[in-house]
Simulated scan of single mutants.
Amino acid sequence: MYLIKTPKFIQELFPNFTWKIPSEDKVVYLTFDDGPIPGVTPWVLEQLAQYNAKATFFCVGNNIEKHPEVFEQVRAGGHSIGNHTFNHLNGWSSDNLPYFHNIRHCANLTKTVLFRPPYGKLRPRQTQFLLRHYRIVMWDVLSGDFDPNITEEQCLLNVTRNVEPGSIVVFHDSLKAEEKLRYALPKALAYFAEQGYRFEALNEQEMIVHQDQRKSA
């Protein structure tokens, strides 16, 4: 069970997480989890380049170590990088200290304070600790590209029907999601381009400033 559109009451329950970027402009923030993966991530980069689109890649550290050349392609494309733990760990089923070490291991590779917990799952004490060191990025719209029980068409509709200005959208540059991703991503890019949207990467420094402002408000 998962939610395609994150309800506002959930976003308000966890105000220290970044769910979307407030904007009056037509801008959407595409994010890709679980890479880098040969064949999949380079294809994503090609699709983005056709629209001069920038995105954010929440990378698994183990995949960075296995595929450093693909990781460098992401960086060279001018995209933002995020931390998705070293071994794609579920915070709910992980002891705190090993979980923190796993995240730090990945941080040594990504060199970023942007962090997205796999499955969006964190324990309260994990959250408290991580917020002192990272900017926790969740999402406003989940494509569902990982779900074998939905169609390619539904995956696309999950995105096109729910994006608003400033939405953070989750896709996966993984083998599990590849089939639906190859269908939905080009069509989503074309759709939002026709609607006058631009595609931007999450800006680490701007997010730090924004979060500090929210804390002091």
Results as ranks from 00 to 15, higher is better:
residue 31 T to C: 06
residue 56 T to N: 03
residue 67 H to N: 15
residue 89 L to I: 08
residue 23 S to A: 11
residue 35 G to K: 04
residue 74 V to P: 13
residue 101 H to G: 05
residue 59 C to N: 14
residue 79 H to P: 02
residue 102 N to W: 12
residue 51 Y to V: 09
residue 84 H to I: 08
residue 56 T to L: 10
residue 38 P to N: 05
residue 53 A to K: 00
residue 102 N to C: 14
residue 98 P to Q: 08
residue 28 V to S: 09
residue 22 P to H: 01
residue 34 D to I: 07
residue 24 E to C: 03
residue 93 S to D: 10
residue 42 P to Y: 03
residue 97 L to M: 14
residue 107 A to R: 06
residue 101 H to V: 09
residue 69 E to C: 05
residue 107 A to T: 09
residue 78 G to H: 04
residue 91 G to N: 11
residue 29 Y to N: 05
residue 61 G to Y: 11
residue 55 A to P: 13
residue 55 A to L: 08
residue 27 V to M: 06
residue 85 T to Y: 07
residue 88 H to K: 00
residue 50 Q to T: 01
residue 108 N to C: 12
residue 61 G to I: 11
residue 28 V to I: 12
residue 59 C to Q: 12
residue 105 H to C: 14
residue 59 C to Y: 01
residue 62 N to E: 15
residue 51 Y to K: 07
residue 72 E to T: 10
residue 51 Y to Q: 11
residue 104 R to M: 10
residue 68 P to T: 04
residue 106 C to R: 04
residue 38 P to W: 03
residue 54 K to C: 03
residue 109 L to Q: 13
residue 103 I to H: 01
residue 22 P to N: 12
residue 46 E to R: 10
residue 64 I to R: 00
residue 60 V to T: 15
residue 49 A to E: 09
residue 51 Y to S: 05
residue 83 N to A: 01
residue 100 F to S: 05
residue 109 L to N: 13
residue 63 N to F: 04
residue 84 H to K: 01
residue 110 T to S: 14
residue 23 S to M: 09
residue 102 N to P: 14
residue 37 I to L: 13
residue 31 T to L: 00
residue 30 L to K: 01
residue 71 F to I: 03
residue 25 D to R: 06
residue 70 V to T: 05
residue 73 Q to T: 03
residue 36 P to N: 15
residue 40 V to A: 00
residue 41 T to D: 04
residue 114 L to G: 01
residue 54 K to P: 00
residue 61 G to P: 09
residue 32 F to K: 00
residue 107 A to K: 14
residue 68 P to N: 05
residue 96 N to E: 13
residue 88 H to R: 09
residue 56 T to V: 06
residue 49 A to F: 08
residue 115 F to E: 08
residue 89 L to E: 10
residue 85 T to H: 07
residue 107 A to P: 04
residue 81 I to G: 00
residue 35 G to A: 11
residue 101 H to K: 14
residue 42 P to T: 07
residue 52 N to K: 04
residue 31 T to P: 07
residue 51 Y to D: 04
residue 87 N to D: 13
residue 102 N to Q: 13
residue 37 I to H: 02
residue 64 I to N: 02
residue 103 I to P: 01
residue 70 V to E: 02
residue 87 N to T: 15
residue 39 G to Y: 10
residue 58 F to G: 02
residue 35 G to P: 02
residue 70 V to Q: 02
residue 115 F to V: 12
residue 72 E to Y: 01
residue 79 H to L: 02
residue 33 D to W: 03
residue 80 S to E: 10
residue 72 E to D: 14
residue 38 P to M: 03
residue 108 N to Y: 10
